[in-house]
Amino acid sequence: MKKIIHKSATRGFANHGWLKSHHTFSFASYQNLERMNFGMLRVLNDDVVQPKMGFGTHPHKNMEIISIPISGALSHKDSMENKRSIEVGEVQVMSAGTGITHSEFNDSKMAAVNFLQLWVIPETENVTPYYNQKMFEAAGRKNKFQVLVSPKNKQIEGSLPINQQGYISMIDLDKEFKATYELKNGAYFFLIDGEVSIDNELLEKRDAIGITGTNQVSINATKQSKLLVIDVPMS
């Protein structure tokens, strides 16, 4: 087994006023040769967008982009004529493929939006762009792993498809609950909130651990916790 631990405070940080962003991996002005990716997971940004602000129209190509709101709601508009609001409990997936443009805004006059944005390197380039989003019921992740995203050619019922052999899951853990996660590839565990021990490594809010070279890991919640698991090929 091989482990890599990324404490919350070691992430890159950018403060643009309207946007505060923590970067788990190298992104924009934050460049760290030791933090380029975890296998096919290229970007994990923890973004806070201020009221009535957002990202103007910009392009993407050949990337699987997954957005997960933590608080607030984000308005989305793209070149595929999708115009939607993404809210807490929902997950958004875009296969950028041959190319798309999109914008994201916080329409609230009062509340900031906090969301996670993940970029996964695709299995095949230049696919037809794809978009979808879905509300996932909280009961489906109560002390069990709820699969949010899975490969389009091995899609797990109820999940959203991506163009990669990757799986993204979430679990809401009660204090003292113990769980076992079965790895399909390498797995990157990102603790959204709470406190857990993963393979005897203690993680606090926004800490993460990447694990490879094993079939399963044990998880013990020392506080009520919310955990995101990003299971992706390592090469």
Rank of each mutant, 00 (worst) to 15 (best):
H6P: 02
H6I: 15
K7S: 09
T10R: 08
G12L: 04
F13V: 15
N15T: 03
H16P: 02
G17R: 07
W18H: 01
W18R: 00
H23L: 09
A28P: 00
Y30K: 05
Q31I: 12
R35K: 15
M36W: 10
G39Q: 04
L41K: 07
V48A: 06
V49K: 02
P51R: 02
P51T: 04
F55S: 02
G56H: 08
G56C: 05
H58T: 02
H60D: 01
H60Q: 02
K61V: 02
K61G: 00
K61Y: 00
M63Q: 07
E64L: 04
I66D: 00
S67H: 00
S67P: 02
I70A: 04
G72R: 04
G72Q: 02
K77C: 08
K77I: 13
D78W: 00
S79A: 03
M80K: 02
K83Y: 14
V88Y: 08
V88D: 07
G89P: 04
E90G: 01
E90D: 05
Q92Y: 00
V93C: 07
A96P: 01
T101H: 03
H102M: 05
S103D: 10
E104K: 03
E104D: 05
N106P: 03
N106L: 04
D107R: 11
D107A: 11
K109S: 15
K109F: 14
M110Y: 13
A111K: 14
A112S: 14
I121F: 15
N126M: 10
T128W: 01
P129C: 04
Y130S: 08
M135P: 06
A138K: 14
G140H: 12
K142N: 15
N143T: 10
K144P: 09
K144H: 13
Q146R: 10
L148C: 08
I162E: 02
Q164I: 01
Q164K: 01
G166F: 07
M170D: 13
K175N: 10
K178A: 12
A179M: 08
Y181T: 03
E182C: 12
K184I: 12
G186I: 10
A187I: 09
Y188A: 06
Y188L: 09
F189A: 10
F190N: 08
G194E: 09
V196T: 07
V196P: 03
S197R: 11
S197D: 15
S197V: 11
E204C: 10
E204Q: 14
R206N: 08
I209D: 07
G210Y: 09
T212H: 12
G213C: 11
G213L: 10
Q216F: 11
S218Q: 15
S218P: 06
N220S: 13
K223M: 12
K223S: 13
L227A: 07
L228D: 03
L228V: 01
I230K: 01
